[in-house]
Amino acid sequence: MDAMIQVGQNLFGAAWPLIWSVLKIVAIVAPLLLAVAYLTYFERKVIGYMQIRIGPNRVGPWGLLQPIADGVKLLLKESIVPTVASKGLFILAPVLSIAPALVAWAVIPFADGLVLADIDAGLLFVLALSSVGIYGVILAGWSSNSKYAFLGAMRCAAQMVSYEIAMGFALVCVLMVSQSLNLSDIVNGQGKGLFADFGVGILSWNWLPLFPMFLVYFISGVAETNRAPFDVAEGESEIVAGFHVDYSGFAFALFFLAEYANMILISILTAIMFLGGWLSPVGFLPDGFFWLAVKASALLFCFLWFRATFPRYRYDQIMRLGWKVFIPLTIIWLVVTGVWLISPLNIWN
């Protein structure tokens, strides 16, 4: 690695830091997009087996080339802009939904020290970006100039705004116990404690002392990404496909890329905040990116499992769960955590 940096500096001189950053960004985004593509394949396979079908199996061995075929198909299709649509915003909307989903990866630590931007306010950065993702949806719904799209956008926006608050409060509990907004510090903080000293680090992670917050965060994450059973924004049986009903071709694909990139992001964040990130669950195995990938994949499987298992929530029940169950619960747990931290039983110092 150092040799590569040396060669780069000699070759490009002053422009090297820029090129080096771009290379690092590509090294994150390219595997991410590949993961997104294969997550769609994995979803169809998992749901297929859960419904006693076999899922995609025609394109390539075991249907493994299916996501590539889908991508090519969507690229080659015509992107139609409806005549009465607000054209500029109609094109801007998919861009605004994919961009925050990708930018948030800048602060994700993949292993100890392996992070693009190791900023102090990483947690705040993630919160801010997840709140920006909503614009793509609202603009898509409004600029299509169609009633179904607008209804979908309204539902989606109301849902995202509601669940963001619960997610924010759950993360406040995490930052209270880890005393830091830096994501690497949050993970390293989970590696310390009584159980970690005994070699069972899995019991030192945040999920155990903050168990209600772990559940609230992950379920809110499912709602935030508009996934089943909270997918009223798409609501195929009621409003056709929600906010992106008027999109076609690759503009439509961008919304899907954003949705799946957000799913992976939420899974990774849950793993980092509550499941110890790259830390190994037991003392005798080494830490590393492998563990983060395993944890995130397990959480992603839950996303798919939920979709295959639960019927869609009724709209008022979604709102009730967000505002009247999750937010009070998080506020109570905030107080509990605060009292715990100043009590002699504090386990985090």
């Binding site: 801010a128 709140s131 920006v132 614009y135 609202i138 926006a157």
Partner: peptide
């Protein structure tokens, strides 16, 4: 950085959404 991110979090993420 705190003020910058909070500006985006509060104004872009919440206030402007309601405005829109």
């Amino acid at each position: 950085e705190f003020l910058a991110i909070v500006l985006i979090l509060v104004y872009v993420g919440a206030v402007m959404v309601l405005f829109l």
